[in-house]
Design a protein around this nucleic acid. Sequence first.
DNA 1: ATACGTCATTAATATTATTTATGAGGTTGA
DNA 2: TCAACCTCATAAATAATATTAATGACGTAT
Lengths: 296, 296
Amino acid sequence: MNTKDLDYFKTLVEKRNYTEVAEIFQVSQPTITQAIKRLEKEFQTKLVQVDRVHQKTEITRTGQLLFQKSLAIQKNLELAHKEIAAADSKKIKFGLPPIIGSLYFPQVVGELAKNDLLDKLQIFESGSNTLFQKLSDGDVDIAAIGSLLPINNPHFKVTKLGTRPFKIVVSTKHPLAQANQAIDFKDLGNEKFIDFAGQFIHGRILHDYFEHTGIQPEIVQKTPDISWYKSLIRANIGIGILVTDEVSQNDENFTALEIKNPIPENFNVSIVRRASYILKPEEKQLIDILKDIEIK
Amino acid sequence: MNTKDLDYFKTLVEKRNYTEVAEIFQVSQPTITQAIKRLEKEFQTKLVQVDRVHQKTEITRTGQLLFQKSLAIQKNLELAHKEIAAADSKKIKFGLPPIIGSLYFPQVVGELAKNDLLDKLQIFESGSNTLFQKLSDGDVDIAAIGSLLPINNPHFKVTKLGTRPFKIVVSTKHPLAQANQAIDFKDLGNEKFIDFAGQFIHGRILHDYFEHTGIQPEIVQKTPDISWYKSLIRANIGIGILVTDEVSQNDENFTALEIKNPIPENFNVSIVRRASYILKPEEKQLIDILKDIEIK
DNA sequence: ATACGTCATTAATATTATTTATGAGGTTGA
DNA sequence: TCAACCTCATAAATAATATTAATGACGTAT
């Protein structure tokens, strides 16, 4: 079967006009008619139903089924072309969410530079959802992903880097900092909280905690930026949650408190790639280095 | 591009021998040589490297990339054939895990029979993992799935039916049945538990509870069958967890107790189908009926 | 009625895939 | 070392397939 026939068919489904499709592909109109006939013979079914009376071209259910498959096949061919075209390049198309970039990357920059990988990295900064899209489309080949749940999708290969618990963070001036012991989240109903704006995983987690403990504390501020968030906590405007590493050890204005009875949602950091992708040597090296960061 | 070339290539990658591939497809050997050359020209890359000295045929990295895509394309074509071949049949290939079958189906059988759907159902009983595989392969077209987490995979369309909490179940003879009030899981450290054998979601949940409360109670029995499980509880051999509906209202030997501070993992029941599948009218009707069951 | 738009049909032609025949490169074993 | 053998490549001939040109059928619009 010729994929060109699928191309014709796909465009016919979209345009519903044989003549127009022929013009688009710069071929004669009977070419399209014959291509559809070939497909109908191959699949032993009627794909297209021309209704002259109502002047419309209908796609049968089997036609719609084949259309869906044509899309997938085209996407695969496109991916093959993209991947093969980029095969000689030493560049690594790497997706990196800003949070992970600022959290974990400082730790590895040295090692990456030592292995001559730093200038090969072509970094695409986006949120996790966008990165999954970019992975699917072949716009990035490897991505670091922060997720609440372990990623479980046979179309992706996942290398787990580590899991970090969320902690309550308070200013050192805050009463809770004095006690400095594990905290039951449900005892925080009367505290003032700083919330996260935008697509932050942190925000989801914070609200999951609210929901599962049934408390409804006051939200005094909302910010889309982690460093703002920290500043607000330091200034004791309110309290919040962060992943351990986001609180640097020697920051005297901060106290991070463990949560008693934590919900089973942690911040999972993983390296994700398409299951159908074959790594370049440089990419293997990169993943090996990332795997070796001990996430403390 | 002709998909036959991809077939030849795929088999060549597997067999690493042009002559053998030619024999398999009952064509002459140069046919295979030319097919590979066509692909190499199309993708502007060397796909296969014949090493006469070491007597082996190597597949380049770009060859491996194309191989992966060939697999996916073949799978799509196969799916198209399967779906289209089954298009005229009124049968609904429906996947149903035994637990869900026994839990929710009694409620809808009447409605299904009324709409003449019951005899159209071709039921495949398997666990969720197997069902996902069968969905991918086109062996079933629609499946009911019980999962702890909402299903989030762009290759599937999901219709959520409902979410059920897990409860502690004890025999009426058990002391906890007397109190008959919500229970904190971490207070159950000294109880005897019945565990689940096999792939039951229930088993995972039970152990998640153990882990998140930090208790390590005694496991007195392990069973792969829900009705055995119930019998053991009724006989007061130990206590366990079940989804609400699994405990029939009028069963006097049972008490179901709510869990205080539940973990955010519920038993989610969903109807799942391939994203690329187009429903038959009967299938649409089935889903509409299932959606309307109010899961109490 | 006539002109026009859209698709189907058919035979002729162009393109593409396959085969036949042969050669090149290498191994194996007497 | 040389003949026999295996495997793949090359080239020209042939077979198979896709495309076109020419035309007709069916319906709408004016």
